[in-house]
Design a protein around this nucleic acid. Structure first.
Lengths: 178, 178
DNA sequence: CTGCATGCAAAGACTTTGCAAGAGA
DNA sequence: TCTCTTGCAAAGTCTTTGCATGCAG
């Protein structure tokens, strides 16, 4: 595979720096590091899964029962503002958040319309084309958002889809992070 | 400009077929052509602008006062199901709809973060790369959704942005369609 | 200490839906 | 006529916010 440098889970090790970078972000804005914020941030950067506000609340509460829904909703904008997490719209009516922008600031999503699984990937070639198109239209590209939707070839041929395999990461099936 | 075949307004003439194609879609599903649906559909396909449910309601009511909010919300899914209109998320909290998929089924959006204007474009090269990436990951690409965000070069150099010019079409500033 | 942050509950924004009346085909 | 559609208003879902209390720096 050439051009696509990254697919799937990046593991927890790399993501650790996401947490630290967010703490630095907070410090830079003279914002306080409260127990609740710590619980939320640790939750977010200990997973590579996409999540909703509701899921984040449930997960963060396991670390600190005192985390409230309001604080989750107040922290989410900080996370997106830091650039380490980004809002995603899967047309499901609620906003999903992707914590993988800390390690992969320019990745894209391929969504399987059969099993709803999501594969993350990066493409240098597409990034270059985007910059080029932006230039031609008179803009300096600052970021991009690409979702490719497709159907699973394996499912079509074999009647089952390997993405249903729980080992595949970054799926839309949102389990609990540890 | 090569690769990008289309930018900006496509005019009303081409869009007329959007309406007819939707009426055919209704007929194919044995759905009735009511006065309210007609007003909504004529509104949608007489503009190239992106709109919200609320705006569509206001506009459609000018053609037929009897159009209700409920009918707008019930018709929107039919429009998206037909493939002639697509939901768009600009992170504004509400869903926007783009009626330009009838004429340009695979176009993308460039969004200016300075003036919020939106330029539509098509790129054959990117489309090919997407298909290629999909294949490598084991999927048959059925559709894509690409948003490029950038800052306006002109604004940076001259202190003003030509996209503020009302002549530029498909802008985020949603005026009334005729 | 001082002011930012929090939890709670109420409010808000947008969208969906049950139901009786209305109207295409 | 026979259903599919509609308008209305109530309900639903997700998110934001006012306020008194709490706590980090």
């Amino acid at each position: 595979m050439r051009g696509e440098k990254y697919t799937g889970d990046v593991g927890e090790t790399q993501n650790k720096c996401g947490k630290q970078r967010f703490l630095d972000f907070l410090g830079g804005k003279r914002l306080r590091l409260t127990a609740q914020r710590r619980a939320i941030v640790e939750t977010v950067f200990s997973t590579t899964q996409h999540f909703t506000a509701d899921q984040l609340l449930a997960w963060a509460r396991k670390r600190d029962r005192s985390v409230s829904r309001a604080t989750v909703y107040r922290t989410l904008p900080l996370l997106t503002e830091s650039g380490l997490v980004r809002e995603m719209d899967f047309g499901k009516g609620q906003t999903y958040y992707d914590p993988n922008y800390a390690d992969h600031p320019n990745h894209s999503h391929l969504i399987c319309e059969d099993c709803e699984k999501i594969v993350e990937f990066e493409s240098e070639k597409i990034a270059r084309l985007e910059t080029e198109i932006g230039q031609k239209l008179g803009f300096s590209v600052t970021r991009q958002r690409l979702q490719i939707t497709g159907s699973c070839d394996e499912l079509k041929k074999r009647g089952t889809c390997k993405n249903l395999d729980p080992r595949s990461a970054n799926s839309a099936a949102l389990h609990e992070p540890r």
